[in-house]
Design a protein around this nucleic acid. Structure first.
Lengths: 137, 137
DNA sequence: CTACCTGCAAACTTTTTGCAGTCAA
DNA sequence: TTGACTGCAAAAAGTTTGCAGGTAG
């Protein structure tokens, strides 16, 4: 349901990016995290493995991976966060746990049921349900 | 449908806040704007009327007004924005124009139709439709 | 070998805080 | 009069950029 470490590095090398040790670790981190990570989370995790790591490199890699479509950037009220792109190809929405920030798919899409006046040209929509998952309530 | 200048200043003075000239102008600005405003927008508009205006006062007032429930703070991909709270008391959602950022109500709420597993405890939800309104397309 | 990647330092943007003078009620 | 409001200055937090040396392919 989410991209794997191998899929991520494959996509990156296919685009001509160098697969450094750091990027491998980054790919692994995201592939194994089901929740959202802040740049700070990433920096702290990576810092344990690479002394002298700098914040700007983290930012640069997050941005590159986002532009490739490997990562998804979401703006929450408390800041920007990243997560691996869903491997699930169909259009879907998410329930998001306010505690652990894991996401669960919702296949139902309200858009076809929404009555939009002809004069309004719809470009995109957002439907998200927030709450607590069974492990966190 | 949106709060008026008078309603806004009334709410503020009822809470013991001083109604300064600057706050009156702020109330008027928001009452007459149907779209979202960034702190920078507000600073620039207010700056035309008050030379020597400082950014921190704008932030302080925005935050106070938000805490009183006069303003609504929304985080967009390109930053934080504010708009007057809807006077409409019923639960509703919005269509938001990507150009002028005006909002239009949607009475339909998808939540009752959404199949949420029992283990997930829903706290809140977000449903927003983005596109172009008839004036902007 | 060469273009890409990284760390360092510094700049930049956005937001917050302490302080002292000013003003609404 | 008095506590709240404001501008100023500075700090804090988050993010971006230029540069020079290092490394994957």
């Amino acid at each position: 349901m989410l991209l794997t470490t191998e899929q991520i590095t494959k996509i990156m090398s296919n685009q001509g990016l160098r697969i450094t040790d750091q990027r491998k670790t980054l790919a692994k981190l995201f592939a194994e995290s089901s929740g959202y990570l802040t740049p700070k989370d990433v920096y702290e995790y990576m810092g344990k493995h690479y002394s002298g790591l700098s914040f700007d490199t983290v930012y640069r890699n997050l941005r590159v991976m986002q532009q490739l479509g490997v990562l998804e950037q979401v703006v929450f009220e408390d800041g920007v966060k990243f997560k691996v792109h869903c491997a699930e190809p169909h259009h879907h929405h998410h329930m998001i746990c306010l505690q652990c920030e894991k996401t669960y798919p919702i296949t139902f899409c309200p858009m076809p049921l929404t009555d939009v006046p002809d004069e309004f040209e719809v470009v995109k929509h957002k439907f998200e349900v927030f709450g607590y998952c069974k492990d966190c309530r």
